[in-house]
Structure formats: structure tokens, C-alpha cells
Computed example of a mutant assay.
Amino acid sequence: MFPWIVETARLLEADDLINLERLHFSVIWKEIDRVALGHHFDFEAVMIYLARWSLVERWCSFDAQAATARFRQLVSAGLGTVTEIPAAS
């Protein structure tokens, strides 16, 4: 039912996040195609168009270096002044 899960696990284990994102975009795109069947000139067609546009815009603006810098900034802000993370009990 979800054949992409095995590939997702493999990419996560390989720490290949760019290809993982690419895989997820392709899965979402295929699902949008499936949902689009039969919708041509109705409200759903407009929403489907917007979903596709959002996906394309997100992919085109992807910048690995900027994403890494933003992630590090968020982690630093989230940890604040914590210098040591306590061990799990």
C-alpha cells in the first residue's frame, strides 16, 4: 500500500535527506494526480492547482546550505543556554 516507505527508511539510514525530500515530493505529486482525476473546472481543481504550485515553488526554492544554517539557528534558539543534554533515564 505504501511502497515508498522502504525507500524512505533506506534514505534516512543513509542520511540522504535531499533524495528523501525528492522522494516525498514525487509521492505527494502522484497523490495530487490521483486526487485530480475528474476535477477540471470546480473548486477542487483550483485547490489542486494551488497544491501543485506550492509544491513546485517549494522545490524550486530549496537551498541545502540555507536549510542547514536555518536548522542550526533553530536548534541553537531552542537549546538556549543549555550546554549539556541530560542522559535519558
Rank of each mutant, 00 (worst) to 15 (best):
L79T: 12
P3I: 06
S89C: 12
I18R: 12
V82I: 07
I85W: 05
W53S: 08
H39N: 04
Y49Q: 11
A36P: 14
D42W: 07
I18N: 15
F71I: 01
D63F: 07
S61V: 01
P3R: 07
E57S: 05
V56C: 05
E84T: 09
R10I: 01
R70H: 13
A88S: 13
H39W: 08
G80T: 11
E84G: 01
F43D: 14
A66E: 01
T81I: 09
Y49V: 10
E21G: 12
V82N: 01
D33M: 11
N19H: 09
N19K: 06
R34I: 15
V35A: 03
A64R: 03
E31L: 15
F71W: 05
L37C: 11
W4E: 05
D33C: 06
H40L: 15
H40D: 15
A45L: 04
A69P: 01
A64S: 06
A51Q: 07
Q65N: 13
Q65V: 14
V27R: 14
V35F: 06
D15W: 10
E21I: 11
I28K: 00
R10K: 15
T68A: 05
L11W: 08
I18H: 14
I18V: 06
A45T: 15
I48K: 10
L37T: 14
A14I: 02
D16E: 07
V75D: 09
